[in-house]
Amino acid sequence: MNTNALSAKLLSLANDSFLLGHRNSEWAGHAPILEEDIAFANLALDELGHAQLWYGLHQELTGAEIDRVIYFRDAAEWRNTQFVELPKGDWAFSMTRQYLFDGYENVLLAQLVNSSDARVAEIAAKIRSEEIYHLRHTSNWVKRLGLGTEESHARMQRALDELWGYALQLFVPLEDEAGLIAENVLPDLKILREEWQDKTVAHFLASGLIVPETLTPVVTSRAQHAEHLAKLLNDMQQVARLENFGVEW
């Protein structure tokens, strides 16, 4: 097996979950209602926990310490999609993004639990039980906001229009992914995308929302980032990067 290819994949999975969790944590104390403030913070924490699992295996394979990878790498070294680095926007935007991501993770994890790599399969099984609940929760929100008031519907449609092309980047394979697919370590993202698309389009439709016609991701390379990532990292990393504090993180 190509260990470098697997490490690259693990890093991309970890980066995506981590940044989405970080973005959504910005809602803590600001969500529209107390109960959902707690619920959304729970989802964000879950994503950080999932990232920790992927980073853990990545560390096992590469020796790269989790804290170093998160707090001491510049934007150019991150391998997340632009989808997760976009600013949190309004509530409709964050909820739609989380829903799209949950849908993606559910189709992905359903296959990864059967990965020929036992370590990958084990992590996927752990994450999957939670992602089933995530998708249930965010599906319900999408439906209620989509069918809610005129304003909530308009905001949801705007969020979907903006996010859809970015979400498609989740299904762009990495350079060396084909070998891992052949060895049944990873599922084929092309097939997953069809399944994801069928399910999400149907759910949006049932929620009164129309999915844009575009079939092309806004961006395909995970090495390419918008200015949002550098800003986010600057906020997130500055304390860890302060010198002379004599603190072991």
Binding site: E35, E36, I38, A39, N42, Y133, H137, N140, R144
Partner: peptide, 13 residues
């Protein structure tokens, strides 16, 4: 339905 989910997130953490 949302009451059950909120209950889970607030009390079953």
């Amino acid at each position: 339905e949302m009451a059950m989910e909120n209950a889970r997130d607030v009390f079953a953490r």
